[in-house]
Design a protein around this nucleic acid. Structure first.
Lengths: 135, 135
DNA sequence: CGGATCGTCAACCATCCGGTTGAATATCGA
DNA sequence: TCGATATTCAACCGGATGGTTGACGATCCG
């Protein structure tokens, strides 16, 4: 709904602030998934996951398309990139420079290392119970 | 305090999810500031700003050092970089669609190539009241 | 048709969050 | 010492969040 139309970064960062939702994004990195399949590894109700997905969709981090009776969830990385670029501004103590960003993408993406921790890919989430925390 | 020791990314993203706090970070990009000076451009109580700063400090986005009776706030970009790295894992997911990305940016950083600095520094914030919101 | 599956909705609950105000603490400076 | 300045603390409030359960509307399939 988003009746108040807040700053897009508000909703993006708020969506990213929840470990369950970040884990969902990691899962969707692999492939598009149905809601039920997204919910499967988590120890929480389907309704809760459905809400999380709604939050992600509201932040435009994912899109959802209903085909038949199953609703497919798809990662939508543009919003993430926007947030990422916002942060890059701090990393380099410089106003955002799209060209520099593009250069960055081209150079840094090829060493396709595992960028994120994969702590959250860990086959069985139980987001509350501190398994997936290392630092 | 942070009694529950949650994932660092939780607190970082949660801290970034508030426009007042992002504005504060932008201000600290310029220079270290005392709490009172941080509060000055905002139309909210000093106590509220003090709380915001505590949130930022808890997320390690800033550090605070008390010299005399004034507490200096200093930007600490390492945490931001960590979050940034996390997000880049998603960036490489796709061939980068810079056009779509740029469109998204425009909804966020309205005018000019000057991404932040002054859009949110605009002499008087009233973060709730829709001045700096355009979408 | 009728039953199983997919997903959301509605109500409810506990907790967190962002803000307020007023009092308290600490330090500076005359 | 006394008053002004800097900052936090404590209590409170309304609204958002994250979770639950149970009922419900669709859709598939035998």
């Amino acid at each position: 709904m988003t009746t108040a139309t807040p700053d897009p970064l508000d909703t993006v960062f708020a969506a990213l602030a929840d470990p369950t939702r970040r884990a969902i994004l990691n899962m969707l990195l692999e492939d598009d998934m149905a809601v039920t399949d997204v919910a499967e590894p988590f120890s929480m109700s389907l309704a809760a996951i459905s809400k999380h997905l709604a939050v992600l969709a509201d932040a435009r981090l994912i899109t959802q398309e209903k085909r038949g009776r199953v609703k497919w969830c798809k990662l939508e990385p543009d919003a993430l990139r926007a947030a990422s670029v916002w942060m890059q501004g701090f990393g380099q103590f410089d106003p955002v420079d799209l060209d520099a960003f593009e250069r960055f993408l081209e150079t840094e993406f090829d060493h396709s290392g595992e960028a994120f921790s994969d702590t959250e890919n860990a086959a069985e989430f139980d987001t509350n119970s501190a398994d997936n925390r290392l630092d």
